[in-house]
Amino acid sequence: MSALESPRAEGATMEGYNFAYLDEATKRMIRRAILKAVAIPGHQIPFGAREMPLPYGWGTGGIQVTASILGPADTLKVIDQGSDDTTNAISIRRFFRRVAGVATTEHTAEASVIQTRHRIPERTLREDQIMVYQVPQPEPLFRLEPRRAETKRLHALADYGLMHVRLYEDIARLGHIAKAYDYPVMVNGRYLMSPSPIPAFDNPKMHRMAALQLFGAGREKRIYAIPPYTEVRSLDFEDHPFRPIRAPHACALCRSTDTYLDEVITDDAGGRMFVCSDTDFCAERQAATAQEAAE
C-alpha cells in the first residue's frame, strides 16, 4: 500500500474513491494551505483548487476544505442560508456520507465540522468544532480595486483607506453604512477580510469565537482562516458605529426576538411571515416550548 492511500473508513459506501473524495496528495496540499492560513489570521493563501463534482458557486471551496479536514470519527453538519434542508445542504451532506461514510447531523451541538453558506449558527460554538465557510469572492477590496496585484500590495502594506472611503460614501449618500452582508472585518488588527456573504448580523459572532473558522474559495482558489479566540472587528466610524441588522420582528414559529430572521412570502396577496433563518435553532426552541407546555 503506497503512502498516498489512506485506510478506508468503516462504512464508506462508494467504491473506487479515496476517503472523502479527494486524493491524499491534494488533501495534504490543502492542509498545508490551511496551516499557513491559521498561522496568518485573515491572510488569503492561494491553493490549487481541484475540479469538484459540482459547479463553481455551489461551494467547491468549502467542500475541498471539509474533505481535507474530515476524519472517519467526525460528524458533519451543512447549512445553506441557515437551513439544513435546502438542496445544497442536503446534497453536500449526502456527498460526504457516500464518499467518506461520516455521520451527518442537523443539530449544531452534535456536529464537529460545520460547513456553511451565508450563516453562522445561532448556538454558541465550542472549541472542538470547526466552521467551514463557502466563499464566492475572498478579496474584500474586489469592488474597489480590480487589479489583484494591487490589492495584494494594499494587504501587504495594510493600506485600507480605500475600504473606509467606500463606507464614507455610503454614509454620505444614504445616511448609514448600507452593507448588510459580506461586511468587511479586520482580523487580529492586521488583515482586512471578507467574512463571506454572511449577514452583518453574524459578524459579532466571529469575534473571539471558540471554534476554528476556515474559509475556502474554490473558483478564486484561496483559503483563509481565523484561529479560535481571535479578535475580529467590523469596520466602522466612531460616530457611525457598526450595527448588526435584523428584521424588527419575532420569529413566527418560536417567538425568538434575538435571532436572524428570514422573510417568507406565504401567498400572492401580500401575506408574509418572519421565521428564524437557523432552522435547527428554531426547531429546538419550539420543542422546548412544547415540552414546557406539556409539563
Partner: peptide, 9 residues
C-alpha cells in the same frame, strides 16, 4: 482615512 481618521463628522 488612509492616515487613520475614523470619525465621519
Amino acid at each position: 482615512m488612509a492616515v487613520g481618521a475614523r470619525h465621519y463628522g
